[in-house]
Every structure is written in C-alpha cells, then in structure tokens.
Amino acid sequence: MSAVLEVRGVGKTFGGVTALADVDLTVSTAEITALVGPNGAGKTTLFNVISGFGAPYTGEIVFDGVRLTGRKAHEIARLGLVRTFQTPVGFPSLTVHDNLVVAAGGHGFDGPQDALLRPRADRRGLRAAAERADQLLGEAGIEHLASAYMAGLSPGDLKLLEIVRQLASRPRMLLLDEPAAAMDVNQIGTLSRLIRGIAAQDVGILVIDHNLAFVLELADRVHVLDAGRLLAGGTPEEISRNADVRRVYLGEEAA
C-alpha cells in the first residue's frame, strides 16, 4: 500500500464562484477511497481537475511521482490515471466490443501512419486489443452484449460497461464518477464486488457518489466535501459518527 495520488491545496474558481478551496487528498493503492458530498459540493470539479479536463487550477496534483499540472487529458490517461464519466454514453455508433477495443488499444492509436505503413503490426495490435476486450467482457459476465450497441443496453449495464471499458487500458488508478447512479440494489452488489476486485489488483481507486450507504459500505477511507472544502476524512465508521457530516450531509441538526 502506497500513496499513488496526492492532491495538495487544490483550488478552482469559475468567475467569482469558488468551486474548490484548498483541497488535500491522498489516495493509496490496494484500498478504496471515496469522496462524498451533496450536489454542487465540487466532487465532479475535483475529478475534472485531476483528470486534465478542469485546467487551470491552483495547488498541485502529483500522480505516481509525476506532477499533473499543465498536462492534457490524454497525457494524464497515458500515465495510467483513468476516469469514468457520470453519463455512461460510451461510443454510441460502435458495438460494445469495439468500445472496449478502443479502450484496450487507446494508447497506441494515434494516427494513420501505422495503419498505412505498418499494416501487419497494426493488425496485431487490433487483435491483441480484441482479445483483451473478450477477456474483460468475460470477467464482467457480459459476453452476450458484445455485438449490441449502447442504445440497446439497460442503464445498469451502461454503468457497468463504463467501468469495464476504462479497465481495458490496465490503469494504475481509476476515478469513478457516480458509478452506482441508476443502479438497483442487486446491481450495486455486483458493482461493489467488481470495484473491490479491481482494488485488490493494486489499482488505486477514488470513487465519488452521493449514495452514502453505498460509499460507507464500499470504501476504506471516506472524505466529505462540502461547498468546495473538505469537511472531514476518515474510516467509514468515523465518518458515520461525525457530527459535522451528519449535519451537512444528512441535514440533521446538531444535538
């Protein structure tokens, strides 16, 4: 277990509105870190900032010893820090299988040079990515969806696929943006098992959600964000006992 992502004093403003202020956060591999907070607390803004979609910002973010400030989204993804999106639309005109193939080969898929000048190597790359896609579909138990399109999938399957897809590139760390939204109780159970399995393979996980029950059950460490500031951090037990959290998050009056 070691720190893989360090967020130090990160701030972000939109015009005059402070979305994030002085956020400090550390994520280690082999455990699941969660970030909770009510709507508008700045969870997704923090995700965007970390994954390169939210520049510019103040403070510093370090991933695996590399400073992320000023790097583009695709460069950050290539370092092994991969995110999911809240709306799991995927690539609508590609089959489920091709969705995973793109993800599995994403790093090397850069331009027409290889396709035209080194067709054999290109075919090999495509075949390797296709095998990885088959394997992932098998592991997630959704082989039967291989030739379906996004539009034909249930909301739960879409959410599941959003995670499985981003696993294809073998990331060092996953940022999961509301993975449990639109899922029923059974699917949430499957999801929790999947996420624990990923963490067990030494992949760092930071998950944001406002389903407090899901997060407290899943995570090893929980941070609570409110109005752009970290309110509390600790184990799920500590968080569920924390009076500030209960007041802000559950709307309870302090006793």
Binding site: F53, H74, A77, F85, V89, F91, G106, R165, S169
Partner: peptide, 9 residues
C-alpha cells in the same frame, strides 16, 4: 472527452 480520457490525442 471519453476518447481523450483513454489516452487518444
């Protein structure tokens, strides 16, 4: 955005 998030320039 999704393509970028999987490393495509």
């Amino acid at each position: 955005p999704l393509a970028r998030s999987m490393g495509t320039a």
